[in-house]
Design a binder for these strands. Structure first.
Lengths: 182, 182
DNA sequence: TGTAGCATGTAAGCCGTTACATGATTGA
DNA sequence: TCAATCATGTAACGGCTTACATGCTACA
């Protein structure tokens, strides 16, 4: 690991590479808008403690004191981020999927309970997908090759495809469960 | 939360509903074989401490002392699990996807680095998929409607579909990146 | 004037991992 | 007999969340 920092630190640091200075509050909003789909939504308190740590390491530069302090990535920060991206392996995704977990244990409840859960999941997927569509739309105009939001837009497309596919699979699973005898 | 226990406790408890008595060691293996695809692979040490906690709550029944102790789910355990499944909401999946995260930040490294990472991810997906295929094959013969491995097989199919789809998407992303000018 | 959003933290605590420690059993 | 696997834990620690605490600013 580049510096022994947790991945979330680099993730937050990375959100500062899009050209602007952010307060902790704004950084949290950006994380909620984008990062939460592929990583996590860190708690407010964690955003502040991470920013403090990044500043200690000289990877971000605070501007102003007390209320309204904004942070920009420093040259050292940019270098640390690049090194981390190049020299360390990403590792395989970890999925914490409570719906799949409960489906796995479907034999301990009745079928209706399982089917209802899957239906709810489809609704939740549709909501999340709508939120991601909005994010993706917000990138339009700066998402061409070489433009600043190129990669975020690729990831958004990836996420949308994932949601779409999951909706389809879960729909199939519901049908398979319902086609079984009583 | 049914009892205030973490989800992983219920997950491990759930792995004991398939009709057999397991040692901590065997439970860990079962978790590695199935749970790790949709939830987590708890560390050995955690398996033992979770089993101790479940036993304290009377949700599992240990048989034998010291080395070779096996655990079975108790009636109370079965009831706690069912209640948890019925009364609590699953919540939305959380994905920790380091590859997507790094793709999001693709503008801080050169394209070759990103493409190489995506190619490696495809290879990793193929390996994981192969492992899941073996798991799924092991369920054959007991995976019909009403049979004990019915739900595990549904989840395995879900996982296989997910892997297949992700391979396809990532392949598309690689092509999109390569089609861009230098 | 009061409430929603902006803004920033501290403290406690749980979940889970890594590192460490120990010993029995099985098979090459 | 030596290594791999089976088997079971303890201790330390890090990451992250929840709960709590504080106060400003904009606007209805």
């Amino acid at each position: 690991m580049g510096q022994g920092l947790p991945v979330t630190s680099y993730a937050l640091l990375g959100l500062l590479t899009f050209g602007d200075a952010l307060t902790g509050y704004e950084l949290k909003q950006r994380a909620d808008a984008t990062l939460r789909f592929y990583w996590v939504s860190p708690a407010m308190s964690q955003v502040y403690s991470e920013l403090a740590r990044l500043a200690e390491h000289g990877l971000v530069t605070p501007s102003g004191e007390g209320r309204g302090t904004t942070y920009t990535i420093s040259d050292a920060g940019r270098e640390a981020l690049t090194t981390w991206m190049r020299e360390s392996a990403p590792g395989f995704p970890v999925l914490k999927h409570p719906v799949a977990l409960r489906l796995l244990l479907g034999h301990v409840v009745d079928r209706e309970t399982t089917v209802a859960m899957l239906r709810d999941h489809v609704l939740a997927l549709e909501k999340e997908e709508a939120a991601l569509v909005e994010v993706r739309d917000g990138l339009r105009g700066h998402d061409g090759p070489g433009e600043i939001f190129r990669h975020p837009s690729l990831v958004a497309d990836w996420g949308l495809d994932y949601f779409e596919n999951e909706r389809r699979i879960v729909g199939d699973l519901i049908r398979r469960l319902e086609d079984e005898g009583p």
